[in-house]
Write a protein that binds this DNA or RNA. Structure first.
Lengths: 228, 228
DNA sequence: CGTACCTTTGATAAGACTCAAGACTGGTGG
DNA sequence: CCACCAGTCTTGAGTCTTATCAAAGGTACG
């Protein structure tokens, strides 16, 4: 009926409304966690779904091997959504934070009477697909700085919906986490940060905060073959 | 109700039933196309959705630039599903084939009375996410042969649901298409094929058909750091 | 204040890309 | 049936970038 509810036009980042949050807190329980906490492990039964309220987390292929990071999760994201009966990925908190733990059965019941919530899930799934394709595109870039540039724009777009100001990129994750996400060594990440700063394209305020100074030249790094 | 219809456990490859095909042919029209045909272009309005019946196609970021291939489409796959109002990718036929062209409005009407069809779409979306994450994982492998090995297993899993026999990998796309998908140069693809064959891991029957001879050694190429 | 971890910096070497040329395939027309 | 031709594919040599190994510098935490 309304384009807002079409399952076929699902892209568009958004957050849960206060009403939806209230419903989720009714059917689930809020869980607070510390940085470094294992939120779930690969192979766990998918009886509950986590909905991130605050903080950041990383999704890994294995609990032990944190070298390969599949995705980052921020406020409004779900865990275990697209994963069959048992979870195929592990997740670990990158910062302190909080999440709703929602029984799958209760959530599906809620879907019957709350179509908007259901469509929110489908759209979230679409966003995840979009993010995965963006990461795949990032990974096809051979230049280390092209990958960093695309990573910055990805993080920026994620933070924009949470009220982050454009041009200010907050990096809650470690250099090693960034490296695991963009498929490079931590050393190469560090070097690229330094070069971008030395060229005046970004400013490293501190290890967790980067400002974009010259967006045109940042974009030129990944359009074409790597604008030098 | 039935686990088969859960939107929260959506993974699992499957094809449309004959009944569903009949419904789709009612609400849409079948289109036959030749190899090389432009199926849709980036920016086109998403008034209709294509559902692949036969053949193979490639999805590209731009109609002009076919170097970067986002995904391949085979029988049972949809085009333009996860893309907002206007299409964000282009698609081109890799082989001769056929597809249903379905008006979005008619499809959404059908969803109201056919929940199974709707769930089929959600699961397809999940599969696309899974494939995109698989490709991202593939692209994090630095070794050319590791990427080839993962590509073979991906194609094999896609063909298994269409009745392809395991160990026989049919490659309808060109070497350049493979290169564009796995983020390497066509030369590197060619070299890797040769090396895999010379080691007795696969057999190149001809340019379009590869047999897997030693699955263990093929898998060893991407588990760990290379298994050279 | 000390310690452990994260981050940065520095040399080396392996690997893929690029450019260039030769071989093959499939389709076309005589 | 055969010869031709354009496109695809394969092979080869050189260059560049990043991973790797190693160690010093910086931070956060107890």
């Amino acid at each position: 009926m309304t384009s807002n509810r079409s399952a076929l036009r699902p892209i568009g980042r958004e957050l849960l409304t206060d009403q939806q949050k209230a419903k989720l807190s009714d059917i689930g329980r809020i869980v607070r966690f510390k940085k470094g906490t294992q939120l779930h492990r690969k192979g766990d039964p998918a009886n509950t779904i986590l909905c991130m309220v605050d903080g950041a987390a990383k999704v890994c292929r294995n609990a032990e091997d944190e070298e390969h990071i599949v995705a980052f999760r921020f406020a409004g994201d779900f865990f275990g959504l697209a994963e069959a009966g048992s979870l195929v990925y592990s997740a670990m908190a990158v910062t302190d934070g909080a999440a709703y733990r929602l029984p799958v059965s209760a959530l599906e019941s809620q879907f019957l009477t709350d179509a908007d919530l259901k469509f929110y899930f489908v759209r979230k799934l679409s966003q995840e697909l979009y993010d995965a394709q963006h990461r795949a595109f990032l990974l096809t870039r051979r230049s280390a700085m092209a990958r960093i540039a695309l990573f910055f724009e990805f993080i920026e777009s994620r933070q924009a919906i949470s009220g982050g100001s454009l041009g200010q990129i907050h990096l809650p994750m470690s250099r090693a986490d960034i490296a695991g996400y963009i498929g490079m060594s931590p050393e190469a990440v560090s070097r690229s940060f330094r070069i971008l700063a030395s060229r005046g394209i970004v400013q490293s305020v501190n290890r967790r905060l980067v400002k974009i100074l010259d967006r045109d030249r940042l974009g030129a790094l990944y359009s074409r073959q790597g604008g030098g």
